[in-house]
Design a protein around this nucleic acid. Sequence first.
DNA 1: CGGGTTATTGATGTTCCGTCAATACGGATC
DNA 2: GATCCGTATTGACGGAACATCAATAACCCG
Lengths: 197, 197
Amino acid sequence: MSGTRTRLAPGVRREQILAAARDVFVANDYANASMEAVARRAGVTTGLVNHYFGTKRELYLAVVEDLAASLPEMVDTNLPDLPIEELVARNMKRFLDAFEDNQEILSMLLGSEGGLGRDPEVARIMGRARDGIVARMAYNHAGEDPSPELLLALRVFQGAADAAATEWLRRGRASRDEVERLLTRTLLAMVGELSKR
Amino acid sequence: MSGTRTRLAPGVRREQILAAARDVFVANDYANASMEAVARRAGVTTGLVNHYFGTKRELYLAVVEDLAASLPEMVDTNLPDLPIEELVARNMKRFLDAFEDNQEILSMLLGSEGGLGRDPEVARIMGRARDGIVARMAYNHAGEDPSPELLLALRVFQGAADAAATEWLRRGRASRDEVERLLTRTLLAMVGELSKR
DNA sequence: CGGGTTATTGATGTTCCGTCAATACGGATC
DNA sequence: GATCCGTATTGACGGAACATCAATAACCCG
């Protein structure tokens, strides 16, 4: 296997490396994720990784962007018209399912909020991803243009959801039912107050 | 200044280095905070920094622990007995004042949640700090032993507060007043529902 | 089947962290 | 105030990891 090369189309090779990098960055944190580990897993040299992605930070950004893009559909909340309580209840289930199913990925993304260390580029990427989720939630809730207040409330609610998921999944201090009840009440209170205006 | 040494009591020197490290880690993120920068600012050699704190990660943990310990008093909410609405209103002001005054420190600590990259030790330290804040809030709210449900609600509320502060201070998408109103309503809803049981 | 394009390599330079024996500062002792 | 000893401090070194670059060889094309 040494001395023989396999030459691929740039797009294919790039995708290979990106996939390898995704695995490595999800498994280890930034500092402990070595370029050589990525290269080995992709079956190439470190030089090639740098050739395609430039620096380690840029590779990391590519991974975060890739995963973040898939985030809004993870918590897809495309539902038919229903009474608000029912709508929120179903959305909440999907939300928590997504947390439960993609713990590692989400913990990497959320952990990377300040992530690589409050990198502005990472912040920008994650901000857009969160906006994507908020937009989907808002769309279901109010068909037309959502108000800025609603968007803010939904974004803040996400912070609550993250904290709740942490207590539930990482620290084991709350059951899924408790978390679900608490978050449902909270969300209803937040958007409910809003429409009284 | 070169060739001449100044020999200090270990405690004093250790404190010097820790202070220097605090500055460096608050100003730069983990990857860009060099041991040499810490050493230079403390007026010593990198060898000595390692001598006192072992590795860079351990130095970082010492800084985080130091700052995290000061966190609960930052948002100290020791207030006289007041009607619940008034109590929450005042606590919220202090909370937001703390955010406004200590942006850099808080952004480092919150960014370090997964921070150095989901380091379990960092998570433990930050968990304790958050528990400290929750305990203070709960103490004001209910003099006797607070229920687990209240603690969970307060912890989750912190997540909402963090998100709100981010939208307000880092992204400039909301005014302080908006955030204050939203968070106040949210907190009241969360703990209000709780007592109906 | 040869020739050229370029994907890929491997060696090399650089930076930074961590270690360790050697050193010299400062209090103790007389 | 001179000397001695414990240890705080240094400076040099080894190693790990990222990044660069000229050299190489695999694949496509005529």
